[in-house]
Design a binder for these strands. Structure first.
Lengths: 261, 261
DNA sequence: TGTACATCAGTGAACGCGCGTTCACTGATGTAC
DNA sequence: TGTACATCAGTGAACGCGCGTTCACTGATGTAC
């Protein structure tokens, strides 16, 4: 697609259920030895592709180059991925999952009742992961490639971080808003939450909207910092990020500990 | 650079003062007829390049393709731009300037004393411009190309929007914070404002920090929306954007009119 | 355990393509006197 | 106003390259009986 001349907005491929690179129909780990080897090779390919992504960016990712790196013929790659696009999609899904896992893990290690610490752990995990995997972050949160439309399989992995944040938001709501940190209401917005973000069901729309703002602000900061737009503006990104998170916490009705005003 | 194999972080070209595509040393409009024609051709080239950007994305922008579109030989292009990279840089600078101009114009049309309306006009101009020029926006605010380092000539155009926002922030400060909308202080952050953002000099660091947050949130929202991450979450982007802006206004000490809480 | 067959992984050559950039050149446009 | 020369715009052929993808193939690994 990067080379093709498709106009903006053209769908590339729906889901292609029995595609080449896909694992056997249902889940679980591979049963037969052959399937296990196959899965291992796929991992090897993706790892090499990720390395190239980091070095040269998504636009320069090439099937031939990956094959070379692995000492494989370029045609051999097609036993594992039906096209360059499919390989890219696999990387996108992995990126979402990897980020989601990092966030879930970091957040899960915090005492359930420490709402700010949970939010802070999640936010920091996003930022840390982004800094550790800048190209993968850019692949997912950077400018989209015209003509490429994320296939359906992307949706669930993409929802992991929002979902984790949603749970925090809900717990904060259930715990009751702390005094002295009022959430200002947002009204007149139609929220169309996909069924993926269940925890939010039942919350007042303005609370949900505040949650979305928090989500946008978190990723807005991380993107701006990672993409170099804060250079020459903020010296100590770490401290600034902490302050931003404290700020946002108040927005979603979480007490920071350090009182505001 | 997109095709080359440069590792991350390699500087491509400093400034190349007397480059091919550059106009005569000092400013002003072209004097000789030849220079005028030349400038017109450069504009034609950039326009065609922009069209391709919109259709196929930055990665697929090709000197040969642009030349073809213009009925010119590909080698002829090199009379105007020394390389593909130089053409891309010109597009980046144009994008910054175009966006900056749009914001300045929109903001300048509002009564100086209507602080919220000024902020709102500027914010809306950013969003509108981004939607009208998605690929150019992505070129500038999307994931950076590894190996490409923005040359010095980029800095001033890039500062136009922050500058416009800074003026609003300063005017808000000079007007005194309205009662009932306290700005919560941010401390412990080292701000290293480049000399470009003069209006902020003299403001308390926490006010400046709040301004930066506003800036990040504005672009964070626009990027998220444009890059498709709000799909399935927010239905009415217009209304939501308005609410976000009202929110942010309070953060930077601007009274919205509709009281909060 | 042993044979016969089917499945799969991987190869190497080839197709056709578009790319960035260089180079020696031809005319047209400007400049100096 | 007219000539001689320098500058510039633009051409066409060529260089060398890497790309995605296909195809007929060879062995190795698995499966059925």
């Amino acid at each position: 697609v990067l080379h093709g001349g498709l106009p903006l907005g053209v769908v590339v491929q729906p889901a292609s259920g029995d595609a080449v690179g896909a694992s056997p129909p249902s889940s679980g780990r591979p049963e037969t030895p052959r399937a296990r080897v196959r899965a291992a090779v796929i991992e090897e390919i993706k790892a090499a592709a990720r390395a190239q992504l980091a070095e040269r960016g998504a636009a320069a990712l090439s099937v031939r180059h990956v094959a070379r790196e692995l000492g494989m013929s370029s045609s051999g790659m097609y036993r594992y991925f039906a096209s360059r696009d499919e390989l890219l999609t696999a990387l996108i899904i992995d990126a979402y999952n990897d980020l989601g896992e990092a966030v879930e893990l970091a957040e899960s290690r915090v005492d359930r009742s420490e709402l700010f610490d949970r939010w802070w752990a999640a936010a920091r995990a996003v930022r840390d992961w982004a800094k550790a995997h800048p190209q993968e972050y850019g692949l997912v949160f950077g400018s989209p490639v015209p003509g490429y439309v994320a296939p359906q399989e992307t949706v669930a992995p993409a929802a992991r971080v929002p979902l984790a944040l949603a749970v925090i938001l809900r717990d904060a709501w259930d715990a009751g808003r702390p005094a002295g940190a009022p959430t200002s209401p947002i009204t007149g917005v139609d929220l169309a939450l996909s069924e993926v973000v269940e925890p939010l069901i039942g919350l007042p729309p303005d609370v949900v909207a505040n949650g979305i703002i928090a989500w946008v602000e978190l990723f807005g900061f991380v993107s701006f910092e990672l993409f170099g737009h804060l250079v020459g503006t903020v010296d100590n990104g770490d401290t600034f990020f902490r302050r931003v998170c404290e700020r946002v916490a108040v927005t979603i009705g979480i007490d920071v500990g350090v009182p505001d005003a």
